[in-house]
């Protein structure tokens, strides 16, 4: 019986971090499944899912990572998946929408939009923002499966929100972005 662990690592970015972390996992006989990493302002963060033999513990893994020779510090947190807990499948859910927000930069834009999502039980599962020439742009990937209202109502509320906050906010089904930008291989 294998056990699964979710491992997250944050560190100053340099070449070789993924090699170091996955090397530590490999030495413990671990098998990496999903991995996601991103770099922001020179800092790297990664989250991955790996499976290990039953006897490997969180402490073993933490120790293995701490033995990696590096000038920067790894901030590591590890979560062990309990038997019976189902991990969600990779890939976007069925009712995925993309929300884009554009407007002049000011404090609280991300908080305001994320609060709006939270109030409507909309889950944000990917979010990227950029600041260019004092224009703030957010692109959010949203899961609307448990949304507290219909898409049409949500759109009206977003229109009201964008008017009240001086932002250009638009929500559109993920499929539209896929068909206009991707050639899918089946």
């Amino acid at each position: 019986m294998k056990k699964q662990m979710i491992i997250s690592v944050m560190s100053k970015d340099r070449p070789g971090i993924i090699a170091s972390i996955t090397g530590a996992i490999y030495q413990l006989g671990g098998d990496v499944a999903d991995l996601n990493q991103t770099v922001l302002c020179g800092y790297l963060t990664m989250i991955l899912n790996a499976s290990f033999d039953e006897e490997v513990t969180k402490e073993d893994l933490r120790a293995a990572i701490s033995h990696v020779k590096t000038e920067c510090t790894f901030e590591v947190s590890i979560k062990e998946i309990q038997p019976g807990e189902q991990l969600e499948a990779a890939g976007p859910p069925k009712e995925t929408y993309i929300l884009t927000v554009q407007g002049p930069n000011k404090a609280g834009i991300v908080h305001g939009i994320s609060l709006f999502c939270s109030e409507h039980n909309v889950n944000i599962f990917d979010l990227a923002t950029t600041l260019q020439d004092d224009q703030y742009t957010m692109a959010l990937q949203l899961d609307l499966q448990k949304c507290s209202c219909e898409i049409e109502e949500l759109q009206h509320k977003l229109d009201a929100y964008s008017t009240a906050n001086g932002l250009t906010v638009m929500i559109q089904h993920n499929d539209i972005f896929q068909v206009t930008n991707e050639i899918t291989l089946h």
Binding site: Q102, T137, T168, Q172, I176
Partner: peptide
């Protein structure tokens, strides 16, 4: 996820 520039160009096509 799609790149932000792809998303924004599609938004432009739909909105404007």
């Amino acid at each position: 996820m799609l790149r932000s520039d792809q998303i924004l160009s599609t938004v432009e096509m739909i909105q404007k």
